[in-house]
Design a protein around this nucleic acid. Structure first.
Length: 400
DNA sequence: GTCAATTCACATGAAAGAGACCACGGTCTAGTG
DNA sequence: CTAGACCGTGGTCTCTTTCATGTGAATTGACGA
């Protein structure tokens, strides 16, 4: 038996025998539906009141839910939706997350998905769009019912497929004989409303609900409740929840982030064989999340931008202080020559540096140094582990 | 010592060019009846 | 005969360059006390 296999068996055996600190890890993921939702009573009531007429078969107002990530928009909506469906057989909720690639790309795909949800078979491609419109329409109008269409992350849909589809959907009501259709858009981007057709805009936002970020205390309540379900007893050390919620509150009150922190802290603790989660694991989790985020960004950057980043890291490692755009450009040109990349102009590099700053991969601030000109002063965040990770990614692409 | 003018090293804007990408209509081709 | 492959065309979008203008404090140099 090869040595590696033996080791694996040991690992598995240990894994089974070890007492897990998780009871139900699911409840820390963002698709988990809690039994009741904390600190969103007002919003839930408002949604429910807006949608209640559907129980009597009346048309409800179209509605828009706004709020930054992790403020409970989707959960609240789903909660009301499921309660509504329980309350009446004539109410149907079609929930679509437009971020899912297979749904959001085109008008056709969205309609196909919706029609499928109404129980019809639709081929993934091949039918003309107006044909599928008819299918959707007929399926909708086949019986007396209130259909509530929830478009989560609706901004993604508009960006890719245009606002025409919304216009068509809002008009469909005028032709329906039996059914009623109302549309609910959910978005974390408040500005995208500006560049959609005003007719669509006014008909969609008959009702608007803003979800404000949670504060640290509210986050703590939410975490506390989920943690009760997620972990076995006496696993969490004192102060862990407070720390988690404080960190997440700094990041615009993002509950998803708070849950991620807690879950990853748990995973790290479990893997290292700990029986309890202390605050130090939260720190580790935060670093992990940061690292993953930066890694994701760096990987997805175009080659030119990666070269710029490489130049900045090289300059820093060579011990340069007060790195300026001009320095970066010189190093960048060198790298381009080595890697046979056509160098861009300094003008463009200036923009790329600004972009990297925006993404939080580097810090760059514009300073004026009097006689010695105006430039950006560039530094990289002093986290060795993350910088190391970035270097490795750049090396894999032979840019370092 | 004071104050306005000068200077540096880019930042920032606007406009135009290059190239990738996509929808759309027309043509061709192979398979079917 | 028709569905699907293939191809050219025009339009759109994104990235980049070119040209032009803006920026803010250290420095400079004239001027007056």
């Amino acid at each position: 038996m090869p040595a590696t296999q033996l080791n694996l068996n040991q690992i598995f055996k240990q894994y089974i025998e070890r007492k897990s600190i998780f009871r139900n890890k699911e409840s820390l993921t963002d698709h988990y539906m809690p039994d009741h939702i904390l600190h969103r009573e007002r919003e839930i009531k408002q949604i429910a009141e807006t949608l209640a007429p559907s129980l009597r078969g009346e048309k409800t107002s179209n509605m828009f839910l706004f709020g930054t990530v992790g403020t409970g928009k989707s959960v609240s909506m789903k909660y009301v939706a499921s309660e509504l469906e329980k309350a009446s057989e004539n109410v149907r909720i079609l929930y679509v997350n437009c971020k899912m690639k297979k749904v959001s790309d085109t008008e056709y795909r969205l309609l196909a998905e919706l029609t499928r949800k109404l129980g019809l078979f639709v081929p993934p491609t091949g039918l003309p769009t107006d044909h599928i419109y008819n299918m959707f329409f007929n399926a909708l109008d086949s019986r007396k019912q209130s259909v509530i269409l929830v478009l989560d992350e609706i901004d993604v849909l508009i960006e890719k497929a245009g606002d025409e589809i919304l216009y068509n959907l809002t008009r469909i009501n005028q032709e329906l004989k039996n059914a009623k259709l109302s549309i609910i858009g959910i978005s974390n981007n408040t500005t995208f409303m500006n560049d959609i057709d005003p007719r669509v805009k006014s008909s969609l936002s008959e009702e608007e609900i803003i979800f404000s970020p949670y504060n640290a205390n509210q986050l703590k309540d939410i975490l506390g409740e989920r943690a009760l379900d997620a972990f076995n007893e006496n696993v969490l050390e004192e102060g862990v929840l407070s720390k988690c919620s404080a960190l997440a509150a700094q990041e615009h009150g993002d509950a998803r982030r708070a849950l991620d922190l807690l879950r990853i802290a748990g995973e790290i603790a479990e893997r290292s064989g700990a029986l309890k989660i202390g605050t130090e694991y939260i720190d580790m989790a935060e670093e992990r999340l940061d690292m993953d985020r930066v890694e994701e960004i760096v990987k997805s950057q175009p080659r030119q931008s990666q070269s710029v980043l490489s130049a900045i890291i090289k300059l820093t490692e060579d011990g340069h202080q007060n790195i300026q755009t001009g320095d970066v450009f010189v190093y960048y040109e060198k790298i381009c020559r080595q890697c046979a990349i056509r160098p861009l102009t300094q003008r463009r590099i200036s923009d790329l540096v600004a972009e990297l700053d925006m993404l939080g991969v580097i810090n760059a601030r514009v300073i004026s140094r009097g006689r010695y000109g105006r430039t950006r002063e560039i530094t990289i965040p002093s986290n060795k582990a993350i910088t190391g990770r970035i270097k490795k990614i750049l090396q894999e692409r032979s840019l370092f």
